[in-house]
Structure formats: structure tokens, C-alpha cells
């Protein structure tokens, strides 16, 4: 079966610029339903921006972003908030509400969007926390959690309402190897168990490729390569190879553009 028989997000001719610089120019991206899709690329290429465009927090200059037929940039404010109930997002920092306990954080979307009785809210929250291994931390405040624990709580909150789409913004950044392994495992297992679609934005190649079904590599305001992890290993592009192998120099130069060093040093004499 083709990946793209059933797609949940269809991005067409997306153009987005900031400060006179194109972040995306006429980009087409399709996200298959129920799969783990990775958006990868060097820092500063607009990977997180793409998630914010899908979430409707940024508006593109032109193009469409269809989520199950709803064109996100053209939705009104209240329609957008309704559509966001289908999404969950794990922020890079966790973005837990600092004035609430872990339990309250996970219960927040359930209380806001459902009219479940309080004992059922409790059960759902405890199950979500159990899924991420933090049921025992339910009464802790976010300030008492480690970085990895914060992200797991944020993950429990992101999946609290069983959304159709979960977006992960740099989930592995700054994690120790154990926390990273836990997160990789969780993302994969939750995707399989809950059947939602996952989009992972990351530049941690090994971990991301180990769980991704399909990968887009973003650079130079567009998609420079796409395919399954196996297909990407075969891509004959210097730019893709530099990124995949983590080479310090190549099409993406080590040095920020500058005048010749000899000339600049001599200027001081």
C-alpha cells in the first residue's frame, strides 16, 4: 500500500517569509495518516516554523495547509480553536503550566474540552501518566521535574484527548541517553497503540530515523529530499549526505559568510 493513499495533512505551494527572507517557497508536503513522519534538517531552516504553520499560530504568505479538508490559514479564530482539538503538540521546552501540578497539567485539556465527571477525569489522567511512566509524579510541580520528565508529562498532556495528530518539536534535544531512549520508545509505542499521526521535527538523525516511517529533509526554503529512512540512505546529494553523516563542512559551510580572514586581520595593523 502506498504511504499517500490516506493523507491527513496536505500542504500545497506553501510560501512563508520573515524579515524579507523566504523560510518556505512553493513547498508541497503530504503527511500520511497513522504514520510517523519526520521533518529533518539543519538548525534554522524552519522546521519548528512548519509546525506552527500547521497549528495555525503563523499564517503563510500564500499556499494552503489542509488538515482533513480544513484549510488552516483560512479558518477564523474560533474555528481554529475547534480544529486544534484534533491536534496535540509537544513543545521543545515542555511548556507545562508552572502554576499547576503534573496531574492538573494533564487534566487541563480534558476539563476544558469535555464535561467528564471528576472521578473519570482522574482515571483518564492517571492512565495517561501511567503510559509515560509518571503516575507516581502526579502531585509534583513542574519545577520539581527533570527535563526528560517534563517532556514526558507534556507528552501525556498532548495525548490526553486522544488527538488525531501529535506534533513533536525537537523531542530529543538536550536529553541524556536514557531519557532519549525512553522518549523514542514512548513516541513509537504510543503511535502504534493510539493510532494517531505523528510529526517529529528533529535533527537527531539516529533516533528519529529509527522510528520514522517517512522523512522530509528541509533546507534552502524547500524540501531537498524525501523518502523512507532506507531510501534516504541511497540519496546521491552532497547536501543530504552532509546532513545524514553529520559532516562539519560541505554545501552547508562551517564558516558564517565573512570577508577574507587575511584581509580582515591586516585591517587592524
Amino acid at each position: 500500500m502506498d504511504f499517500f493513499d490516506d493523507i491527513i495533512i496536505d500542504i500545497k505551494q506553501l510560501t512563508f517569509s520573515r524579515g524579507g527572507r523566504y523560510i518556505y517557497k512553493d513547498v508541497d508536503i503530504r503527511i500520511p495518516r497513522g504514520k510517523v513522519t519526520a521533518i529533518m534538517g539543519p538548525s534554522g531552516t524552519g522546521k519548528t516554523t512548519l509546525l506552527r504553520l500547521i497549528g495555525g499560530q503563523l499564517k503563510p504568505d500564500s499556499g494552503s495547509i489542509l488538515l482533513d479538508g480544513d484549510d488552516i490559514p483560512r479558518l477564523g479564530r474560533s474555528e481554529l480553536f475547534d480544529v486544534r482539538e484534533k491536534m496535540g503538540m509537544l513543545f521543545q521546552s515542555g511548556a507545562l503550566f508552572t502554576d499547576m501540578t503534573v496531574f492538573e497539567n494533564v487534566a487541563f485539556p480534558i476539563r476544558v474540552h469535555t464535561k467528564l465527571p471528576e472521578d473519570m477525569v482522574r482515571d483518564v489522567v492517571l492512565m495517561k501518566l501511567q503510559a509515560v511512566g509518571l503516575r507516581g509524579a502526579a502531585q509534583l510541580m513542574p519545577s520539581e521535574l527533570s527535563g526528560g520528565m517534563s517532556r514526558r508529562v507534556a507528552l501525556a498532556r498532548a495525548i490526553a484527548l486522544a488527538p488525531a495528530l501529535v506534533m513533536y518539536d525537537e523531542p530529543f534535544t538536550g536529553q541524556d541517553p536514557i531519557a532519549m531512549g525512553v522518549l523514542v520508545n514512548l513516541i513509537q509505542k504510543l503511535n502504534q497503540a493510539l493510532g494517531h499521526t505523528s510529526i517529529i521535527v528533529s535533527h537527531d538523525i539516529k533516533e528519529t530515523l529509527s522510528i520514522a516511517d517517512y522523512v522530509y529533509i528541509i533546507a534552502d526554503s524547500g524540501v531537498i529530499a524525501q523518502g523512507t529512512p532506507d531510501q534516504l540512505q541511497q540519496v546521491d546529494s552532497e547536501q543530504v549526505r552532509q546532513f545524514m553523516l553529520g559532516l562539519p563542512d560541505g554545501p552547508v559551510p562551517f564558516h558564517f559568510p565573512a570577508a577574507d580572514i587575511a584581509t580582515e586581520l591586516m585591517e587592524g595593523c
Binding site: R52, G55, Q57, R77, F81, D82, R84, E85, M87, G88, M89, F91, Q92, S93, A95, L96, F97, T98, F108, P109, V112, H113, A154, R157
Partner: peptide, 14 residues
Amino acid sequence: TTEQLSSMEMIGVD
């Protein structure tokens, strides 16, 4: 700064 407002938006709360 800590993205709490953004995460609230993404939860579907204004």
C-alpha cells in the same frame, strides 16, 4: 517566553 501561551493555544484554549 516559556511557550505556555503557545501550548495553551495548541490545546485549543484561547
